[in-house]
């Protein structure tokens, strides 16, 4: 490739911005940093990078709002969300709104470069995440009817508590179902699970 792939980084912590820039520049990327979401959205309207690495807890519009705006603009960049105060519904929300993956800070630095490269290489080749369960996903036939109900709740962005209330079971039981579902589908984590089941193969 003649021209370096561009990456936009959004984080309100200067040390994280600088460190990501140092690492990604070393890996041959062209990195631009933003301290808040508005600056990013404006920049992306000017021209689209190959990848965006976006902290969810930023001042101004949250990372999730930014994701929604990028999605509304049909931005083709591969977006990674990250957070230091992550929880499962947040991760699920990010994936539903088009993030490729979700990193809980502090994440493994060794992993991020590989993930970014893979996402850039895959961009445009993989069908996008839809709003509902795919008609088929790996491990689907192994799920019990109850597990499928729980999965629908999780993929819909419900917390364990909300899912439990909707299905008339305890949040703890939801959690047990979730662990079994992840085991059957072979998902690494909740974000990965939602991505698998919402992606039309």
């Amino acid at each position: 490739m003649s021209q370096a792939d561009e990456i936009f980084v959004v984080d309100d912590d200067a040390a994280v911005r600088e460190a990501l820039t140092a690492l990604l520049t070393m890996e041959g990327f062209d990195v631009t940093c933003f301290a808040d979401g508005n600056a990013l959205v404006t920049a992306v309207r000017g021209h689209v990078p190959a990848c965006v690495i976006l902290d969810v807890n930023i001042p101004g519009p949250s990372g999730l709002d930014v994701l929604k705006r990028l999605k509304a603009d049909a931005c083709p960049a591969a977006v990674f969300a990250m957070s230091g105060q992550a929880n499962i519904p947040m991760a699920v929300d990010a994936i539903r709104n088009g993030a490729v993956d979700f990193f809980e800070k502090p994440f493994d630095a060794g992993r991020i470069v590989g993930c970014v490269r893979e996402a850039i290489a895959d961009a445009g080749r993989h069908p996008r995440v839809t709003g509902q369960l795919a008609s088929h996903f790996p491990g689907m036939e192994l799920l019990t009817p109850r597990e499928r109900q729980v999965l629908e709740q999780i993929a819909g962005g419900s917390s364990n508590k909300e899912a439990g209330r909707a299905l008339g079971i305890s949040p703890r039981t939801v959690e047990v179902h979730r662990a079994r579902i992840m085991e059957k589908i072979g998902a690494r984590n909740a974000a990965n699970l939602v991505r698998i089941v919402l992606t039309e193969q």
Binding site: A15, V16, E18, L23, G84, A109
Partner: peptide, 21 residues
């Protein structure tokens, strides 16, 4: 946990960069 996560993230990234270098 929250306060430590940012500097730890930055430290790991810098170390990864130095390792690559």
């Amino acid at each position: 946990a929250h306060e430590l996560s940012q500097p730890l993230t930055a430290a790991a990234l810098y170390l990864q960069a130095a390792e690559t270098m």
